[in-house]
């Protein structure tokens, strides 16, 4: 465990908590893409199946359980409890365009052709693009609430920190995983445009609003 990874995990956790808290306190999931949340649920489920098969550390297991529970709780709040506030008219991204290629790529490019390994690979590929329905929703409505922006920012920071973690691990531990690195770079790049808007607008107290 190095500082980049720890801060990355904290940022990831913070993002999930910000989102859950926002939905719970406002009793509304307006502006949030349920499709992105479903994809993240699928990402955590397929990746953390190894909770049963391999033990890494208490930290690792606890975090996995927390991510799974928080993800399912978010989906429950969006699709059951506060379903009436879900803005599905603006959440129109076709997720099969992400899921099908992620499955195909996981079958083609993986470390080992075994069920758990392919599910892990699928989760890595899918995570890299899972935020697209949310970014699409923001671009469609042309704006995002500040709290939604904070959520997206924390999620982007998490991936950025993981990149630093991989650079560190490459020279300090001689450890690298090309699948995770390439997918992680793609994922971080997807947030770049948003980072720019976040820094130039949200941090200056303005609402994130795209030019018409």
């Amino acid at each position: 465990m190095n500082i980049f990874r720890l801060l990355g995990d904290i940022s990831h956790l913070l993002a999930i908590i910000i989102l859950l808290r926002k939905i719970w306190m406002s009793r509304s999931c307006a502006g949030i893409s349920g499709k992105s949340q479903l994809l993240f649920g699928l990402v955590y489920t397929t990746r953390y199946l190894d909770l049963i098969t391999s033990y890494i550390s208490l930290y690792n297991s606890v975090m996995k359980v927390v991510f799974l529970a928080a993800s399912y709780a978010t989906i429950y709040l969006m699709y059951v409890k506060f379903k009436a506030t879900y803005d599905h008219n603006h959440d129109t991204f076709r997720i099969e365009f992400l899921v099908v290629p992620a499955v195909a790529l996981a079958l083609l490019i993986n470390h080992d052709f075994q069920v758990v390994e392919i599910l892990w690979t699928f989760s890595i590929y899918l995570e890299s693009v899972a935020i697209l329905p949310q970014l699409f929703m923001v671009s469609k409505t042309g704006e995002a609430e500040s709290i939604t922006s904070h959520y997206l920012f924390a999620l982007g920071v998490y991936r950025g920190l993981y990149l630093l973690n991989w650079i560190y691990r490459f020279w300090a531990e001689d450890h690298y995983d090309l699948i995770a690195i390439v997918a992680g770079v793609v994922q971080t790049v997807l947030y770049c445009d948003f980072f720019y808007l976040y820094i130039t607008k949200v941090l200056r107290g303005k609402k994130l609003q795209l030019p018409a």
Binding site: R5, D9, H12, R47, D50, I56, N60, M63, K64, F67, H111, D112, E117, W120, Y162, N165, D174, H175, Y176, D177, L178, I179, A180
Partner: peptide, 10 residues
Amino acid sequence: ASSKGIHDEL
């Protein structure tokens, strides 16, 4: 070396 198959991250 590439540490493929070792998934110790979240």
